[in-house]
């Protein structure tokens, strides 16, 4: 029973982090109909920048944190404007291949700049002790609470941006009705760049949170890419709520598979979940019933 509780707690923490990552993918997909396979590598790169500042140059954690977020924002914008813009129209397969190329190139760049070794990344809060509720031990650390809270706050801000601001309205218009939005005066190109920038920022947040209290290596976000992707697909690629639920499902799956079966089979577990869901409901569990009529 205790093991189940521990696994569930860990599963929820990681689930929230994967959900954050899935949200980035959904954000970009809704705006440009592209899956950004490079998202994980972008996040990893900015996390390494934070590492450089905090561990190698003795800066406070929060400086590194902030730099990672800003770098994520800028990197996302840069990639959209310079690379992805050219393949946004045209065959789907081209965009997929481009983001894959970026994925591999960025990860390799990290390896060149920082080496392949596992490096410890600091956590801003205690990452070792859980707490007790009566007789039961809950394996949730202060760091875990910080992670969950950060994602929720960031998510809240993002939703507020979309729902209640003019910029958010323009972003949504650009994502849902490009041509019409242009006719209404929306600078669609800029909105797409902004969308990628926001996704980059969010991804960097996820990266730093995942890294904190653990180890980083050039490929440390690979699992998140897979899991985030599967989570987003579970949610139908169009739904934020679906991405969150998907993230939690994946986090728990990872935890249970690692705990009850074997840590090495975790990725295949995700693949199995993906295939089972897609074979049953090709549009994802939460596929939007809004047909795009005009």
């Amino acid at each position: 029973m205790q093991q189940f509780l521990n696994l569930t707690t860990t599963g929820i923490t990681f689930g929230v982090l994967y959900a954050a990552f899935a949200l980035c993918l959904v954000l970009i997909f809704r705006a440009t109909r592209i899956i950004n396979f490079a998202q994980g590598a972008q996040a990893a790169f900015t996390t390494y920048l934070a590492y450089e500042l905090v561990v190698e140059r003795d800066q406070p954690y929060w400086v590194g944190f902030l730099v990672a977020l800003v770098a994520g924002f800028l990197l996302g914008a840069f990639i959209e404007r310079v690379v992805v813009r050219r393949v946004e129209t045209g065959p789907e397969i081209n965009a997929v291949i481009v983001t894959l190329g970026l994925f591999v190139a960025l990860e390799a760049l990290i390896g060149i700049l920082f080496g392949q070794d596992f490096l410890g990344f600091p956590a801003p809060f205690d990452a070792s002790s859980g707490f007790a509720v009566g007789d039961t031990q809950i394996a949730q650390t202060a760091n875990d609470r910080y992670r969950i809270l950060s994602v929720l706050v960031a998510l809240g801000l993002l939703v507020a941006l979309f729902r209640f601001t003019d910029v958010g309205l323009r972003l949504r218009a650009a994502a849902f009705g490009q041509e019409v939005a242009r006719l209404l005066g929306v600078r669609v190109g800029r909105m797409l760049t902004l969308g990628w920038a926001l996704a980059g920022l969010f991804g960097s947040l996820a990266g730093v949170l995942i890294a904190g209290g653990g180890f980083i290596s050039p490929g440390f976000m690979q699992t998140s890419v897979i899991f985030g992707f599967v989570a987003a697909v579970l949610g139908g690629l169009d739904s934020f709520v679906g991405a969150i639920v998907g993230g939690l499902v994946l986090g728990l799956t990872q935890s249970y598979v690692a705990g009850y079966v074997d840590g090495d089979l975790v990725n295949m577990g995700a693949l199995a979940v993906l295939l089972v869901v897609l074979l049953a409901k090709p549009g994802g569990l939460f596929s939007s019933s809004v047909a795009r009529k005009v």
Binding site: R170, R172, G177, L184, V290, R292
Partner: peptide
């Protein structure tokens, strides 16, 4: 435009707001 150009995912009020936004 042809086909009306309603942005289906937005509300009526939001569609209207877009009209005056610029």
């Amino acid at each position: 435009p042809e086909g009306r150009g309603v942005i289906a995912e937005l509300t009526v009020a939001e569609n209207l707001k877009l009209g005056g936004l610029f």
